[in-house]
Design a protein around this nucleic acid. Structure first.
Lengths: 207, 207
DNA sequence: TTACATACTGGCATGCCGGTATGTAAATGG
DNA sequence: CCATTTACATACCGGCATGCCAGTATGTAA
């Protein structure tokens, strides 16, 4: 095993990333309340000393991990926007993509951490902008995906409602069985589909 | 201070209730992850010994507390069903009541505990039926409140969608500022209102 | 090569949490 | 009025998570 001779910046980046990802994994697996710094360090293949060197407190690590996760998700979504000639078709594609995003382990972790931040001021402060940022991202995506609806202010309330419903289902999904969630989502999806279809119809009549 | 000479059943019931309520209060105030059994006992005005006598483990106490809370809420809701001549009017009344239920400290506690139960099998098992029970309650209430819609299967999907959306908003409400939640709810409420109104209209045409 | 900065190691120490064990008071029943 | 059960109090233990620190290695600049 020859020493890889990494540069300082590389070393730093690699261990940090390993820690951030291990944090998310551990939260997903054991739940935020049960996660220990030792577990995280172990999973990251890093000693507790190194861990503490980069992130002096647990909260800091967790907050950073969630921000990192968010960055990944946003990037991942931004990379392939929904394509299609039909407006409704694109909208439903977006809907499904939104759901898939919420049906992911990452969302579990994010939710746990967000919930925990309610009573942790330090954490809360750092996470304050994340939801705002998420909504901003979705908004931007809407504008890009539906240029024909540009300037139509009616779509944002619908977006928020859809997002809320998706979140509601996703939250139940944290504790329910996959089958029950699947069935619940099918039902809710049907309703949201109608909501969207009507909105698109209305908008194209107006436009 | 003369001894009140309470009966055993009274003593038991009183300390138990004090413990259950203190548990909810503590969870609301400090968050599930930070709550300690000592805090709860202190708040309930009970020693840790008594606490342990009634609830041998923390999980047991928390689960019992949530069930107790649920009982209270269900009872409270069942006591005054929405009245009104107009179907839509009653539906909107129900919608607001549903939101008020979710905009309460009790919901915060319930959510925290539910989230925690994801990685706590013991807790999860005891809470498994609660959501089912809640939905059953809402279903029953729908049947009572809208006898004219009886047998119309279309309203359940809508109910689930509305419930999901309400929950989604409520979850954001856990960490957001009261103002931002108020404004979000107003927006979502507007959409749900339309959803409901359309459903009622359709149902009365069919009926 | 020397001097310095950054990255990392391993272990210690403290506080605290949940659970238990044992003793005491209050109520019930005969 | 005594015996037994139920309800509660106090003290304690084992364990463990967290943060910290003194030292070491590795990269970087003079």
């Amino acid at each position: 095993m020859a020493a890889p001779r990494r540069t300082q910046a590389q070393r730093r980046a690699e261990t940090r990333q390993a820690l951030l990802e291990a944090t998310i994994d551990c939260v997903v697996e054991h739940g935020y309340g049960n996660v220990t710094t030792a577990q995280i360090a172990l999973r990251a293949g890093v000693t507790r000393g190194a861990q503490n060197y980069h992130f002096s407190a647990k909260t800091e690590l967790v907050a950073a991990a969630l921000e990192h996760l968010m960055d990944q998700l946003i990037e991942q979504v931004r990379l392939d926007p929904p394509r299609g000639t039909d407006t409704t078709e694109r909208a439903l594609l977006l809907l499904d993509r939104l759901w898939n995003l919420h049906d992911t382990p990452a969302f579990k972790a994010a939710t746990e951490i967000a919930i925990a931040s309610r009573t942790d001021p330090e954490l809360r402060a750092r996470l304050a902008g994340l939801n705002r940022r998420l909504i901003g991202m979705i908004r931007g995506m809407l504008d890009e995906t539906f240029p024909e609806l540009m300037g139509n202010e009616d779509i944002y309330p619908i977006m928020l409602t859809v997002l809320s419903a998706v979140r509601g289902v996703a939250v139940v999904g944290l504790i329910g069985s996959p089958e029950s969630i699947e069935s619940l989502w099918r039902i809710v999806r049907g309703q949201l589909e109608q909501l969207i279809a009507r909105a698109v119809e209305k908008a194209s009549l107006a436009g």
